[in-house]
Amino acid sequence: MLEADSEILVDIRGLSFSRGDRKIFDGLDMEIRRGEVAAIMGPSGTGKTTLLRLITGQLVPDEGTVTLNGLVVKDQPRDKLFEMRREIGMLFQQGALLTDFDVYENVAFPLREHTNLSERLLRRVVLTKLHAVGLRGAARLYPSELSGGMARRVALARAIVMDPELLIYDEPFSGLDPISLGVVLRLIRQINDALGTTSIIVSHDVKETATVADRSFLISDGKVVASGSPQQLRVDRSEFVRQFILGLADGPVPFHYPAPDYREQLLSREES
C-alpha cells in the first residue's frame, strides 16, 4: 500500500471492466503523479468517461484496483468515498448543471453543502471563480439560458470552487470558441500550478491537449498503448500513435464500433 503522501496520486493496477459482453478495459495500468496535468486520450467510445467513473468510484471494476491518495477506491464505505470526493472537482462532459438553480447558485452549491462560509465570503469566492471563467456577468442566468460553451465554463467554475486536490475534466475543450478555449487552457494550467492541484484531462483534441498536458496516456482496446510527454508522443514511431496524433482513418485503431461483417449485413435479409 502506498503512503498517503507518495508521489503517485492515482494508481491504477490491472483494471478490467466490461459493459455486457463488451470488455472496455482489460488489464489497464496507469499512474498519475501528484501535481501534474495528465491527459487521457483515445478515440471516441474507448471508455475515457468510463475510466473517470472508475477512478471516482461511481463504477466498480471487475478486476484490478484504483488507488487514490493511498486508499483503494472500491474498498471505501460510502461516507468515506464521499469524503474523498470532496477533494475532487469534476467537469462533466455535458456540464451537468443543476437546472433548478441559476449560475451563481450552481457554483455556490458545493460550498453551501460542505462549508459554513458566511454569505459575504461565499459571494466573494463564487464571484472570483465566475470571473475567472469570464461569466461574472451571467451570474443570474439559468442553465437553460446558457449556450453549450457557457454552460461548460460554469461547470468549470463549479468544479474548482472547493479548491480540490484533484481536478478531472471530461472533454473540457469541445464546444468552446477559440477565445474561451485559450482561456480554459490557461486556466487549467494556472489552477494546476498555483494550487498544486493534480489534473486529469480527458480529451480527443490532440493539439489542445498537447499544449497543456505534462504527460499523455493513449488508450485503445482497453489498454494504455502509449504514454509520455506530448513531445515524446509526437516523435513516437509506433503505428497507433502516429495514426491518432496525425488523425488518419487507416491504421490499427478501429474506427468502427464492433459490428458484423459490413457486406454480409447489407446483403442479409434479417434485421440485426
Binding site: T56, Q58, F82, E83, R85, R86, I88, M90, F92, Q94, A96, L97, L98, T99, F109, P110, E113, H114
Partner: peptide, 21 residues
C-alpha cells in the same frame, strides 16, 4: 430530467447524496 442530464451523478460527485437532497 435530472437523471437524464447527469445532475444526480454530478451531485454524487460533489459528495452530496442525491437521494437525501
Amino acid at each position: 430530467l435530472m437523471r437524464a442530464t447527469d445532475q444526480l451523478v454530478a451531485m454524487e460527485m460533489m459528495a452530496v447524496d442525491p437521494v437525501n437532497r
